[in-house]
Nucleic acid binder design. Structure first.
Length: 478
RNA sequence: GGCGGGAUAGCCAAGUGGUAAGGCACGGCUCUGCAAAAGCUGCAUCGUCGGUUCGAUUCCGACUCUCGCCUCCA
């Protein structure tokens, strides 16, 4: 089934077709590294990962680029306050970001360019805009993009949303007299040096200064993916002004369409409310890990709802995610055991055929769901139905025939190449716990159930759940 | 003020012009020394009011509530 995605440019779900055969260029607006990323940020990055994985699942050869914004007002302010250097300050948060991204099961982008390492490209792009007459240097020394001039060349400003510039409440959040722009809608391409910038400054044809916010994404995406590329995504708040301005700068400079498909992920609420530090519902991944949840559980929860709907992230939901994943893990781990042991259950052609059918139905329905504008909820439903069907095929000894298990495992691996939750962290069982369980097994063998139950309680108190198996036991970490 | 989303069971969340997926939680049963896991099973008429239709949760209108964006916030 063809992949359909909702394109913000057309406000409709369209069949996705790349510009060049099977090759897809995908750019995702990355983090501004001034602090640890919060759960809302992570929703967007996990969404981007889902897009990439779905493209790869659909047979595309994806080049995934995600910028690192490492120069910006808040960063400069903190560098000054903490009396550190830009590189040292941003490096810390960049490393933390990439570690967390990995922990969340996101495939590493192929390129993660830093804004500060693309100053020449940024300057070149601004020069092009100045030469084309859509950018100007104002009295304050900064260079601005002129929406009016841009529109004057027949270009369309407001592609991602309907804009009514006259009705917009200009300057509510940033004092309009802070800049000396010709028009309120104009935005900075190059910001002239001010003493507060300290060492954070570069030479340019317009004097010392630093790049504006939007220009880095245009410069780096064009460099990495070309003047026109397939996919650009980010959080919904970036539609305006960030992405709209990226389009204006890029198309203003190249005269070519910038991006074919724009995808935007919705925000999330936490416990039904907008996330804020004062409400105490502002979580970083590290906060959640400290509460005893795993990054994998966070990924599952973030992937439980459709990307264009506001999602309500709750700690209860995270507890539920733990249970839901345990259900999948249980099934997959039984499949692994069966796949590795030949002959414990005799092959059965009819049963094999049934399981093969269940697997191909799952793959078919899963593909339908995920390619339908990433209907992840429907995709999970398919997976859980398959889990139930598969569970029915295990014998009393928790095994199924080797061939049926192998078929099932390979089907699971295919859907998990999109979901990315398959890899459970290996758990190490302490010697003490293991020997207690062995003692308990002996007691059980002697039908001393009182002792066996006491040991089970003891293990539980130590954080381990021991489950009896036909031939022994296994552990779960609580 | 402008623009754009939402309102589906205790919670999270899909979906469809013909009487509602899935997950979590909860109850019953089977299995089990007891558990756990697993299976079976129970649990909603889809914000309110109108309209279109043989029939609407799904289409249209109004209303209520709610969320987001409107210059550097994913």
């Amino acid at each position: 089934m063809a992949l359909k995605l909702f394109n913000t440019l057309t406000r409709s779900a369209q069949e996705f077709t790349p510009l060049h055969g099977k090759k897809v260029g995908m750019y995702c607006c990355g983090p501004t590294v001034y602090d640890f990323a919060h759960i809302g940020n992570w929703r967007t990055f996990v969404f981007a990962d889902l897009v990439r994985r779905t493209l790869e699942f659909s047979g595309y050869d994806v080049t995934h680029v995600m910028n690192i914004t490492d120069v910006e007002d808040k960063i400069i302010k903190r560098v000054r306050e903490q009396k550190t250097t830009l590189r040292e300050f941003t490096g810390k948060f960049e490393t933390a970001f990439l570690d967390d991204l990995k922990a969340l099961g996101c495939r590493q982008p192929h390129q993660t360019p830093r804004a500060t390492e693309h100053i020449p490209e940024i300057i070149a792009l601004i020069e092009k805009l100045v030469a084309r007459g859509v950018a100007y240097q104002a009295a304050d020394g900064s260079v601005y993009f002129s929406i009016e001039k841009y529109r004057g060349c027949g270009c369309h400003y407001g592609q991602l949303l309907k804009l009514n510039l006259d009705e917009m409440r200009a300057g509510e959040r940033v004092a309009s007299d802070e800049y000396e722009k010709e028009s309120i809608a104009d935005f900075a391409l190059w910001k002239a040096f001010v003493p507060e910038d300290g060492d954070v400054t570069w030479d340019s044809p317009w004097g010392k200064g630093r790049p504006g916010w939007h220009i880095e994404c245009s410069a780096m995406s064009i460099k990495a993916l070309g003047e026109t590329f397939d996919l650009h995504l980010g959080g919904e708040d970036l539609k305006f002004p960030h992405h709209e301005d990226e389009i204006a700068q890029s198309e203003g400079a190249t005269g070519k369409p910038f991006v074919k498909f724009w995808l935007h992920g919705a925000h999330l609420l936490v416990e039904g409310k907008k996330m804020s530090k004062s409400l105490g519902n502002y979580f970083t991944l590290r906060d959640l890990v400290a509460k005893g949840f795993t990054a994998r559980e966070v990924r599952y929860l973030l992937l439980s709802a459709h990307y264009r709907e506001t999602f309500n992230f709750t700690l209860d939901g995270l507890t539920g995610a733990k249970s839901a994943l345990a259900r999948i893990d249980e099934c997959v781990s039984k499949l692994r055991q069966s796949a590795n042991i030949v002959g414990i259950v005799q092959p059965d052609q009819i049963k094999l055929q049934e399981q093969q059918n269940a697997c191909s139905n799952m793959l078919h329905d899963f593909t339908d769901a995920i390619t339908n504008d990433l209907n992840i909820s429907a995709a999970w439903a398919v997976v859980f139905e398959w889990v139930r069907e598969t569970n029915k095929r295990f014998k009393k000894n928790n095994h199924m025939a080797n061939d049926a298990a192998s078929v099932s495992l390979s089907a699971w691996e295919k859907v998990d190449s999109v979901l990315g939750v398959g890899k459970q962290a290996d758990i190490e069982i302490p010697e003490e716990i293991l020997s207690l369980a062995k003692t308990r097994l002996e007691a059980k063998g002697n039908r001393d159930f009182k002792k066996a139950d006491a040991i089970r309680d003891e293990l539980k108190a130590k954080g381990w759940l021991v489950e009896d198996m036909p031939l022994g036991f296994k552990f779960k970490k609580l």
